[in-house]
Simulated assay, not measured.
Amino acid sequence: MIGKRLKLSRLSAGFSLRELSDKIDNLVSAQAIGKYERDEMMPGSKVLITLAQALGVSVNYLVSESLINLDGVEICKSALTSEKGEAFIPATVESAVERYLEIEDILGIKSQEWKQLQGFPFSIYEIADAESAAFHQS
């Protein structure tokens, strides 16, 4: 089913359901797109191709299985962060990681172990360390 990847692609592109419907010249309604995202309906081939083009992804990307699921992603909220922005960041990260892992799979290479960045002023060993670094004011 295409639900998760369609939603990730839409959020990564910064579109609301209505904005995506408008982008595809109202070929289908925002409600229909929402049903696709919840896997309650499956779009026809014409709609699927049009959605992929509007989102800048391939049809193959939309119809393939999701590789990862980021749970518990939290971002620093500020007065400048909109609700749309809060959804954009995790969707963009998840989409980028999925694409990277797909490339590794195609090329037959393994992910490298993460190494501490040289010159990074904080040591990160657990979530609390990352949170502390994220909130550190210089």
Score class of each variant (00 low, 15 high):
Ile2Asp: 06
Ile2Val: 08
Leu6Asn: 05
Lys7Val: 01
Ser12Trp: 04
Ala13Phe: 12
Gly14Glu: 04
Phe15Tyr: 15
Leu17Ala: 14
Arg18Ala: 12
Arg18Val: 14
Glu19Ile: 06
Leu20Phe: 10
Leu20Glu: 00
Asp22Arg: 12
Asp25His: 09
Asp25Trp: 06
Asn26Gln: 15
Gln31Cys: 11
Ala32Thr: 04
Ala32Tyr: 00
Ile33Pro: 05
Gly34Glu: 03
Lys35His: 09
Lys35Met: 14
Arg38Cys: 04
Arg38Ser: 11
Arg38Asn: 12
Arg38Glu: 12
Asp39Ala: 07
Pro43Gly: 14
Gly44Trp: 02
Gly44Glu: 12
Gly44Asp: 10
Ser45Pro: 02
Leu48Asn: 10
Thr50Glu: 11
Leu51Tyr: 07
Gly56Leu: 06
Val57Tyr: 00
Ser58Gly: 11
Val59Cys: 09
Ser64Ala: 13
Ser64Cys: 11
Ser64Asp: 15
Glu65Val: 13
Glu65Asp: 15
Ser66Asp: 05
Leu67Cys: 11
Ile68His: 03
Asn69Trp: 05
Leu70Ser: 05
Cys76Arg: 15
Ser78Leu: 08
Leu80Lys: 15
Thr81Arg: 14
Thr81His: 15
Lys84Ser: 15
Gly85Ala: 09
Glu86Ile: 01
Glu86Asn: 10
Glu86His: 08
Ala87Thr: 09
Ala87Val: 12
Ala91Val: 00
Ala91Asp: 00
Val93Leu: 11
Val93Phe: 05
Glu94Met: 13
Glu98Ala: 06
Tyr100Gln: 05
Glu104Pro: 00
Asp105Leu: 14
Asp105Phe: 13
Gly108His: 05
Trp114Gly: 07
Gln118Val: 13
Gly119Trp: 02
Gly119Asn: 11
Phe120Tyr: 08
Pro121Thr: 01
Phe122Gly: 01
Tyr125Glu: 10
Asp129Pro: 02
Ala130Thr: 00
Ala134Lys: 00
Phe135Val: 05
Ser138Tyr: 07
